[in-house]
Amino acid sequence: MLTRVLHTLVILLAMTTGTWAAVVEETDIDVRTREIAKTLRCTVCQTESVWESAAPLAQQMREAIRERVAQGQSAEEIRAYFHSRYGDYILMQPTAQGLNWLIWAGPFALLVLGGIFLYRALNRWVAQSPAPAPEPLSPVDDRSRDRLDRELHRTAPP
Protein backbone atom coordinates (compact mmCIF):
# COMPACT_ATOMS: atom_id res chain seq x y z
CA MET A 1 0.00 0.00 0.00
CA LEU A 2 2.77 2.39 1.03
CA THR A 3 4.67 1.54 -2.15
CA ARG A 4 1.63 2.35 -4.26
CA VAL A 5 1.22 5.72 -2.55
CA LEU A 6 4.90 6.47 -3.06
CA HIS A 7 4.66 5.58 -6.75
CA THR A 8 1.67 7.87 -7.15
CA LEU A 9 3.50 10.71 -5.42
CA VAL A 10 6.56 10.21 -7.61
CA ILE A 11 4.40 10.27 -10.76
CA LEU A 12 2.59 13.41 -9.62
CA LEU A 13 5.91 15.05 -8.75
CA ALA A 14 7.30 14.14 -12.16
CA MET A 15 4.27 15.68 -13.87
CA THR A 16 4.64 18.87 -11.86
CA THR A 17 8.34 19.06 -12.70
CA GLY A 18 7.55 18.59 -16.37
CA THR A 19 5.06 21.44 -16.35
CA TRP A 20 7.47 23.67 -14.49
CA ALA A 21 10.25 22.84 -16.93
CA ALA A 22 7.99 23.72 -19.88
CA VAL A 23 7.38 27.19 -18.46
CA VAL A 24 11.01 27.81 -17.63
CA GLU A 25 12.27 26.65 -21.01
CA GLU A 26 10.36 29.26 -23.03
CA THR A 27 12.99 30.91 -25.15
CA ASP A 28 13.35 34.47 -26.27
CA ILE A 29 12.20 33.35 -29.72
CA ASP A 30 9.02 31.88 -28.18
CA VAL A 31 8.28 35.12 -26.34
CA ARG A 32 8.83 37.31 -29.39
CA THR A 33 6.81 34.94 -31.58
CA ARG A 34 3.92 35.14 -29.12
CA GLU A 35 4.04 38.93 -28.88
CA ILE A 36 4.01 39.33 -32.66
CA ALA A 37 1.36 36.63 -33.19
CA LYS A 38 -0.92 38.43 -30.75
CA THR A 39 -0.89 41.52 -32.96
CA LEU A 40 -1.89 39.66 -36.14
CA ARG A 41 -5.42 38.56 -36.94
CA CYS A 42 -6.22 34.99 -37.88
CA THR A 43 -7.59 35.55 -41.38
CA VAL A 44 -9.95 32.58 -41.31
CA CYS A 45 -11.35 33.14 -37.80
CA GLN A 46 -13.71 35.53 -36.08
CA THR A 47 -11.86 38.10 -33.95
CA GLU A 48 -9.05 35.76 -32.94
CA SER A 49 -5.38 36.54 -33.18
CA VAL A 50 -2.88 34.27 -34.87
CA TRP A 51 -1.64 33.37 -31.39
CA GLU A 52 -5.05 32.38 -30.02
CA SER A 53 -6.38 30.48 -33.02
CA ALA A 54 -6.14 26.73 -33.52
CA ALA A 55 -6.82 26.99 -37.28
CA PRO A 56 -4.19 25.31 -39.47
CA LEU A 57 -3.47 28.60 -41.28
CA ALA A 58 -2.85 30.33 -37.95
CA GLN A 59 -0.51 27.50 -36.92
CA GLN A 60 1.42 27.93 -40.15
CA MET A 61 1.53 31.68 -39.61
CA ARG A 62 2.95 31.16 -36.12
CA GLU A 63 5.62 28.93 -37.61
CA ALA A 64 6.37 31.53 -40.29
CA ILE A 65 6.71 34.19 -37.56
CA ARG A 66 8.99 31.92 -35.55
CA GLU A 67 11.25 31.32 -38.56
CA ARG A 68 11.52 35.04 -39.26
CA VAL A 69 12.23 35.81 -35.60
CA ALA A 70 14.97 33.16 -35.63
CA GLN A 71 16.40 34.82 -38.75
CA GLY A 72 16.75 38.03 -36.76
CA GLN A 73 13.91 40.04 -38.28
CA SER A 74 12.32 42.70 -36.10
CA ALA A 75 8.67 42.71 -35.06
CA GLU A 76 8.00 45.62 -37.40
CA GLU A 77 9.60 43.81 -40.34
CA ILE A 78 7.53 40.70 -39.68
CA ARG A 79 4.31 42.69 -39.32
CA ALA A 80 5.16 44.56 -42.53
CA TYR A 81 5.60 41.23 -44.34
CA PHE A 82 2.16 39.96 -43.30
CA HIS A 83 0.63 43.36 -44.02
CA SER A 84 2.09 43.26 -47.55
CA ARG A 85 0.36 39.89 -48.08
CA TYR A 86 -3.03 40.39 -46.44
CA GLY A 87 -3.45 44.16 -46.15
CA ASP A 88 -4.92 46.00 -43.18
CA TYR A 89 -7.19 43.06 -42.34
CA ILE A 90 -4.28 41.10 -40.86
CA LEU A 91 -3.57 43.74 -38.20
CA MET A 92 -5.45 43.39 -34.91
CA GLN A 93 -4.95 47.13 -34.45
CA PRO A 94 -5.47 48.98 -37.75
CA THR A 95 -2.98 51.69 -38.62
CA ALA A 96 -4.15 55.26 -38.12
CA GLN A 97 -3.70 56.19 -41.78
CA GLY A 98 -6.01 57.22 -44.59
CA LEU A 99 -9.61 56.08 -44.19
CA ASN A 100 -8.58 54.13 -41.09
CA TRP A 101 -8.80 57.46 -39.24
CA LEU A 102 -12.55 57.03 -39.46
CA ILE A 103 -12.29 53.87 -37.35
CA TRP A 104 -10.28 55.66 -34.70
CA ALA A 105 -11.99 59.03 -34.69
CA GLY A 106 -15.49 57.93 -35.72
CA PRO A 107 -16.78 56.82 -32.29
CA PHE A 108 -15.51 59.99 -30.61
CA ALA A 109 -16.92 62.19 -33.38
CA LEU A 110 -20.30 60.45 -33.07
CA LEU A 111 -20.18 60.89 -29.29
CA VAL A 112 -19.51 64.62 -29.62
CA LEU A 113 -22.18 65.02 -32.30
CA GLY A 114 -24.67 63.09 -30.20
CA GLY A 115 -23.84 65.24 -27.16
CA ILE A 116 -24.34 68.45 -29.13
CA PHE A 117 -27.60 67.14 -30.57
CA LEU A 118 -28.86 66.11 -27.14
CA TYR A 119 -27.84 69.42 -25.55
CA ARG A 120 -29.61 71.48 -28.21
CA ALA A 121 -32.71 69.29 -28.15
CA LEU A 122 -32.99 69.51 -24.38
CA ASN A 123 -32.49 73.29 -24.47
CA ARG A 124 -35.21 73.63 -27.07
CA TRP A 125 -37.62 71.46 -25.12
CA VAL A 126 -37.02 73.43 -21.95
CA ALA A 127 -37.52 76.75 -23.75
CA GLN A 128 -40.70 75.59 -25.46
CA SER A 129 -42.32 74.17 -22.33
CA PRO A 130 -44.41 76.83 -20.42
CA ALA A 131 -43.65 77.26 -16.75
CA PRO A 132 -46.06 75.15 -14.74
CA ALA A 133 -48.93 77.17 -13.24
CA PRO A 134 -49.36 76.89 -9.46
CA GLU A 135 -51.94 74.40 -8.51
CA PRO A 136 -55.17 75.99 -7.25
CA LEU A 137 -55.75 75.60 -3.58
CA SER A 138 -58.45 73.24 -2.66
CA PRO A 139 -61.56 74.97 -1.32
CA VAL A 140 -62.12 74.79 2.41
CA ASP A 141 -65.53 73.74 3.46
CA ASP A 142 -67.39 75.39 6.35
CA ARG A 143 -66.76 72.58 8.73
CA SER A 144 -63.00 72.71 8.22
CA ARG A 145 -63.03 76.51 8.42
CA ASP A 146 -64.80 76.39 11.80
CA ARG A 147 -62.33 73.87 13.06
CA LEU A 148 -59.40 75.97 11.89
CA ASP A 149 -60.84 79.03 13.56
CA ARG A 150 -61.29 77.12 16.81
CA GLU A 151 -57.75 75.80 16.68
CA LEU A 152 -56.29 79.21 15.92
CA HIS A 153 -58.33 80.81 18.62
CA ARG A 154 -57.19 78.20 21.12
CA THR A 155 -53.53 78.63 20.32
CA ALA A 156 -53.59 82.38 19.88
CA PRO A 157 -51.85 84.36 22.65
CA PRO A 158 -54.20 86.06 25.06
Binding site: L57, Q60, M61, A64
Partner: peptide
Protein backbone atom coordinates in the same frame (compact mmCIF):
# COMPACT_ATOMS: atom_id res chain seq x y z
CA UNK B 1 4.93 21.73 -47.36
CA UNK B 2 4.87 24.31 -44.54
CA UNK B 3 2.12 26.56 -45.84
CA UNK B 4 4.62 29.35 -46.54
CA UNK B 5 3.76 29.59 -50.24
CA UNK B 6 0.12 30.24 -49.35
CA UNK B 7 1.09 32.95 -46.85
CA UNK B 8 3.40 34.49 -49.48
CA UNK B 9 0.35 34.80 -51.73
CA UNK B 10 -1.97 36.03 -48.99
CA UNK B 11 -4.18 32.98 -49.35
CA UNK B 12 -7.21 32.71 -47.04
CA UNK B 13 -8.30 29.23 -48.08
Amino acid sequence: VKGLLAIDYGVYG
